[in-house]
Design a binder for these strands. Structure first.
Lengths: 223, 223
DNA sequence: CGGCTATTTGAACACCTTCAAGTACGGTGG
DNA sequence: CCACCGTACTTGAAGGTGTTCAAATAGCCG
């Protein structure tokens, strides 16, 4: 299976909207986004994918991709044929459950993003995202003490939150000046996690952490 | 199984956030929404559920509901125990696939809603939602000639789109005066479907219609 | 150094919200 | 039958949040 591991540069489409990819992709390392373009040429980023995330289990049933997937950092992915995947799902119920569970958490996250964009102010949205990524990066062992790498330009942040890059800039400034959180050179530093959570209204229950993550942290050697 | 069919009034919580329901619910008839409240007391509606939609397959794996489900119209639901469901999934692979497929379309819809709220203007958002519901209601045989029932107050519409009820009102007026679509007494009338699609940037591919719906239209007698 | 991209700031404007008040409508009870 | 009530819808006015356009600054890489 390790034969099917591939290294991808940053800013490459792994899969484009409309594709009917042969394989399912699993991120081993790096950072990628799920995104969609509107007819008017605007972009909405739908999800961030980090180590341990499946990109597109749906292609086993749905032919066409209704969105694209793009790396933002150099990434390592493994391609799994739907046949192999279905076989694993059948033979290893524990893994099947784990993959299903991951999908459910992804869905819950998708819902929370809608709440975020629909109901919160710009600084709150950004703060909420940072709280979420702090938790997620923590699970895979990529945080240290309220600090972690988040390789996003302000424009990409804007496309995530439904905001202009200019307004993202001003909101980040506001967060910095309130000494809640700073983002510099793709590095997040959270001064006081609890204050940031309170400010953004972050409640991690949608991440369903009580269930231990089925793919263990940092153990990216699944393949 | 028909023993487990229940009729519910309008505006009742079928399941509340934090619940650990025993059963999975399937809507047979009526109209319900998935929603979430923020700490600041705002509400985001996450999905509309109509005949043939599962409310909460996730509870088979995830204990706590991270959102609530509420009827907006008198509805008929059937409760299925996770055990029964898992048994069906195992014995009837065709149904298992169908249910899985439905879930994938729900996810795709969730993504498109994020695009909608994140990237489109108020009138476009509303128009896009109406296009989507026109298709969905059509699938279950509840449209007639660009017209269908959509039992939402303007406030509920606002909670769906991340807009105030006042602005929903003005946007609806705009849509009405452009002769694109009208909403009166919970009844949608689309004058020219193609113009409405063009206006809102609606592209139905995310609904994955090429795959015929596994639960046949109007045949609500699954139970 | 030069050229690229990302960030930062200013100014004007648009979209959307909030508050407030008035209107329409359906249901209930005298 | 009509008065009353509650809810939803409608409209106006003022203000706030976020956008757009434009230009300047900073940082990175060849």
């Amino acid at each position: 299976m390790s034969r099917r591991v591939r290294d991808i540069d940053a800013n490459q489409d792994l899969i484009s909207e409309g594709d009917s990819p042969e394989d399912v992709h699993l991120i081993l390392e790096g950072f990628a986004v799920r995104y969609k373009l509107t007819t008017q040429g605007r972009r909405q980023i739908l999800a961030y994918m980090i180590a341990g995330d499946f990109c597109d289990v749906h292609v086993t049933l749905l032919r066409r991709m209704d969105h694209g997937i793009r790396t933002l950092r150099p990434s390592r992915v493994v391609r799994i044929s739907p046949g192999t995947l279905l076989e694993i799902l059948e033979r290893q119920p524990a893994i099947a459950r784990a993959i299903w569970l991951c999908g459910l958490v992804d869905e819950a996250t998708q819902r929370e993003w809608l709440v975020n964009v629909g109901q919160r102010s710009a600084p709150q949205r950004i703060a909420h995202l940072f709280c979420e990524m702090h938790v997620r990066m923590g699970i895979v062992g990529l945080t240290s003490n309220g600090s972690f790498e988040l390789p996003l330009t302000q424009e990409e942040l804007g496309d995530t939150m439904g905001l202009s890059n200019v307004h993202v800039n001003r909101s980040l400034k506001e967060l910095r000046e309130s000494e809640l959180v700073t983002l510099r050179n793709g590095q997040i530093v959270i001064s006081d996690v609890d204050r940031l959570k309170a400010f953004s209204g972050f409640d991690p229950s949608y991440l369903h952490l009580e269930r231990t993550a089925p793919f263990a942290p940092a153990d990216t050697d699944i393949a």
